[in-house]
């Protein structure tokens, strides 16, 4: 057992146990922290595969952004107290486990390409690919439009309607 394999086991265990915490935990806050653990584990997997840039992106965007977003959402909504559904979770988890076992039997019988690839791209290579015509310039541009639309639309949804509130108040006064 090499050091790399050991490292893989550690990060994979982190990812899986984080996911399981998300699944089983009774409090939604704890689930969110489980999710952080899972994301950290996945970031570790990226690092193990030689994708340092991706691992850092994962840390920054997911852990820094998405999960914080969730935590905000959790804080803004009252605690969901109905957690008497443990039996249902167990049922689905059992079903998931069975299908996972079935799939993994065939998975380990599958002949996949060996994983002795070349070193993965570094930040410079990725940046160059993103901005080159024959590589990924177009997706980059599409994504920028997408983000613009999402930004404006989400602001519209999230913005408080001052006018409406005023109108309502006036209506009540009258």
């Amino acid at each position: 057992m090499t050091a790399e394999f050991l490292a893989f086991l550690v990060v994979a265990a982190a990812a899986v146990s984080g996911a399981l915490i998300t699944l089983w935990s009774k409090s939604i806050v704890r689930s969110a922290f489980g999710l952080i653990l899972a994301f950290l584990g996945v970031a570790g997997v990226y690092a193990l595969l030689g994708c340092a840039f991706l691992a850092i992106t994962q840390l920054v965007v997911y852990v820094g952004g998405v999960v914080v977003l969730y935590l905000f959402g959790v804080m803004l909504t009252p605690p969901d107290l109905e957690e008497r559904r443990a039996s249902r979770v167990s049922f689905w988890a059992a079903l998931g486990l069975v299908s996972l076992v079935l799939f993994s039997i065939s998975l380990f019988g599958t002949r996949l390409p060996s994983s002795q690839g070349k070193p993965m791209g570094d930040a410079a290579g990725i940046g160059e690919a993103l901005l080159t015509r024959d590589a990924y310039l177009l997706p980059f541009e599409i994504a920028s439009i997408l983000l613009l639309v999402v930004l404006v639309g989400a602001v519209h949804l999230a913005r408080r309607e001052k006018k409406k509130a005023q109108e309502n108040a006036e209506g009540e006064e009258a």
Partner: peptide, 16 residues
């Protein structure tokens, strides 16, 4: 680490 272990991990996350 063989590729299959990564795919297995992905499958586990997918299932969960």
């Amino acid at each position: 680490v063989p590729l299959v272990w990564y795919v297995f991990l992905a499958l586990i996350l997918f299932t969960i």
